[in-house]
Amino acid sequence: MAIVKKRDVLLGEIKGRIGPVVVTSVRNVKVLKAAPVHKVNKKKKKKAELPPQNLKLALISTFISGAKKLVNIGFNNKKNVNAAFQSAVKYNLAHAITGTKPNFEINYPKIVISQGNREMAWSSRIIAEKKDTVTISWEIPDTVKLREIGNDNAFILCYDVSSQRAVISDNCTSRSALSYTRKLTAGSSGHLIHAYIFFVSPDQKSVSRSDYVGSIVLP
């Protein structure tokens, strides 16, 4: 893979395939890659024939893709060699999969969408008082200095298992607000929702580990 170091007169704003080469950009860096080889006769393998890793990876990648916006903040660590998405997939692949081949499942309480040293959410809860609406609440213990963490921003993920859809609330409220109400997609009645929460400092330099709030079936 070649990297275009500076603006190239020859390449200009070219993007796409030129013969055996593909010009694209990866994380805002323009790169040249060999084009993938098209295998015409390759038979699509059945689910049971795939290696376990493929099945697990598909599960986790699908989940994390929906929460990519949050994961990019939660796993954004300068020390990490891997990008945030890869780090999140790697962690959850190792910790949040249960079952045996070919019936792997996501262990939702074990999913982590953010890693950091900031104070986690305490005693978080999810309730659904109205139709298509969930309220997530949390507490701040007496032992914590409110002036240090009270202005932290809350980031919340509600994952609808039934429709496999992630509803993201980024930067939605402050930690001191102690609760947040989120309207979900209309017609979600009867759907199972898993919720996660983490906090980010106002300067965005420090994040907490994500907390699994719980699950609820919408009325």
Binding site: W122, S123, R125, E139, P141, D142, T143, G214
Partner: peptide, 8 residues
């Protein structure tokens, strides 16, 4: 005395 959060 430390007041605990209301755990579930």
């Amino acid at each position: 005395t430390i007041l605990l959060p209301s755990f579930k």
